[in-house]
């Protein structure tokens, strides 16, 4: 949510595949949160595509690129979110 407050129009979270996380199950815990935030966005009337999680291993360069392209194209098609004009951090 902080990123959105600081002016981001979308957030992509790129993590390892399930079971390959260096930090235990951190990627899947994040996944739970992402699924949850998407549901919440739906409830609040914000487009749920603004936040997305992609699973790419460190070696999967192509998948990384397509992921980034995927989210940028999705977000370009959406109107910009309001920004804090008074106090941009």
């Amino acid at each position: 949510m902080d990123s959105f407050l600081k002016g981001a129009d979308g957030v992509a979270i790129i993590s390892c595949h399930e079971g390959e996380c260096d930090y235990g199950r951190a990627n899947m815990n994040t996944n739970k949160h992402v699924i949850f935030i998407r549901r919440l966005f739906n409830h609040l009337g914000i487009d749920e595509d603004r936040i997305q999680q992609y699973f790419c291993a460190a070696a999967e360069v192509e998948k990384f690129v397509t992921s980034v392209e995927d989210i940028t194209s999705k977000i370009r098609s959406l109107p910009p979110l309001p920004k804090n004009k008074i106090n941009p951090k």
């Binding site: 959105f4 407050l5 309001p82 804090n84 004009k85």
Partner: peptide, 20 residues
């Protein structure tokens, strides 16, 4: 459903606070 255009920054800030 609200339209995204009617959202304000204050609203987003509010959502963030609520999530906290």
């Amino acid at each position: 459903m609200n339209s995204e255009k009617s959202l304000t920054w204050e609203f987003l800030k509010n959502v963030a606070e609520t999530l906290d």
